[in-house]
Structures are given as C-alpha cells and as structure tokens.
C-alpha cells in the first residue's frame, strides 16, 4: 500500500507521518510537493498537520487552492481513502470535501495536550481495527480546532453515523464534542487529534496505530477480494 503525504509550505507534521508509515507500519510512503498534479499511482492520501501557507486568511484557506488539491479531489472522487489530520482536516473543510469549519478554540488559546477520545464509528475503513466505543489517548495541538457546523449539518452527520471520533472532555468548544468526521461516502476522514504522534510506546501512546492498521487491512481486503 502506497501513501502520499502532500507537503504544503508550512506543513510540519509531514515527516512524523512518513515516519509512522514507513518505520512503524512498514508501508510505502512518499512526501509529495503541493505542486503535484497526479496522485493516481497512490492508494491513500494523508494531508498532514502544520500551518500551511502560514494559516494566512484562515487555516487551510490558501492550501485549498494548491495544485495538489485538484488531484486530491479527483482522488477522493475515485473512492480512494483520503485523511486529513489537524491542518489537513482544516484544508478538507475549506476544500468542501468535508462539511463544516474549524473555528478558533473557545479559550482563544493554542491547546497542546493529550486528549481522550471515543471511537463512535468502527465501521469505517479508518477505524475497523478498534473495538466498539474504544477509548483512545491521542495528542491534540491546535489553535483552531473548534468544529462548527449548523444544526441541519449536525443532524445529517448524526443520522449517517459520520461522527467518527468524539472528545470525552471537550477541549475546544467543538459542536457535539466532535474530534473527527467522515464524509457520506466513507472515504474522506478529517480529525484534529494526531494519530501519527501516538504510534510508539516511547511517545506515550500507541493508540494511533489502529487507524493505519485499519487502512492497511482494508487495502488487503480490496486487493484480495
């Protein structure tokens, strides 16, 4: 399974992601520049965390128009998995690949801590490795992670089981304790917590591994079906 990790000017979790994929999960992973226009040779795309384009205007607002995003949209439309972590999640909402928006934390402060999450939907290709309602310890590090959507969108997310991760204790003011959501088709996931920072015991948690293991297992199923 070959992963593409697009690198925008200002991305800063790209190497952590590639380290997790290559060194811990023994998967193929390439850092690809934001100018890339073709991702068809990859099996999954992960938009990493950071401060793409300095978070100018709004987080993710400029990255959304980078050439690679046209390729990411085509990739998502083809049904292949796309995941956005932190700034990657912000980019996915700005690009319209996921509903809602990430606004400033309620406290107006940057929050960097370990958060406890509940996996609300284990029937996705990103979460099948987890037990139902599993509790995870994953790091968060964001100033604008406060998920917002209007009531109609929230009702739709709930009705279609699109809320994948919830905070046990809401750190940032997110609507309905939302930490991560998936699109209706089930192949685009966005989450504020950082699974790639929780893949080795020495990092304090290995609870992030399940997401990557789920993707790898799903890929196995697809290729051997």
């Amino acid at each position: 399974m070959k992963f593409a990790v697009p690198v925008f000017p200002g991305s800063n979790c790209d190497h952590d992601m590639v380290n997790a994929l290559r060194d811990i999960l023994q998967a193929d992973a390439d850092l690809v520049p934001a100018t890339t226009t073709d991702l068809t040779s990859y099996d999954a795309v992960i938009l990493p965390g950071g401060f793409s384009y300095g978070d100018y205007l709004r987080s993710g607002a400029i990255a959304r128009f980078a050439p690679v995003m046209t390729a990411v949209k085509a990739f998502a439309a083809s049904g292949k998995p796309v995941m956005g972590i932190c700034n990657g999640f912000q980019i996915l909402t700005e690009a319209g690949l996921l509903p809602g928006a990430l606004q400033a934390n309620r406290s107006a402060q940057f929050i960097c801590e370990t958060s406890e999450l509940i996996v609300r939907n284990v029937e996705t290709q990103f979460t099948s490795d987890y037990a139902t309602e599993a509790h995870l310890q994953l790091p968060i590090a964001h100033g604008e992670g406060n998920y917002y959507c209007d009531e109609a969108t929230l009702a739709e997310l709930q009705a279609n089981n699109q809320i994948v991760f919830e905070y046990v204790t809401n750190p940032n003011g997110s609507v309905a304790n939302i930490a991560g959501i998936i699109n209706r088709q089930g192949n685009v996931l966005g989450m504020m917590p950082h699974p790639e920072r929780a893949v080795e015991a020495i990092l304090g948690s290995t609870d992030g591994l399940g997401i990557f293991k789920s993707l790898l297992a799903h890929r196995e199923e697809v290729t051997h079906a």
Partner: peptide
C-alpha cells in the same frame, strides 16, 4: 465578520 452564532474569542479577549 463572524456570523452571530459563531464564537469570537479574539473579540472577547
């Protein structure tokens, strides 16, 4: 500007 339903923590600060 933010819509009315949106928190404006910077404005509050």
């Amino acid at each position: 500007t933010y819509k009315e339903s949106i928190l404006d923590p910077k404005g509050e600060a």
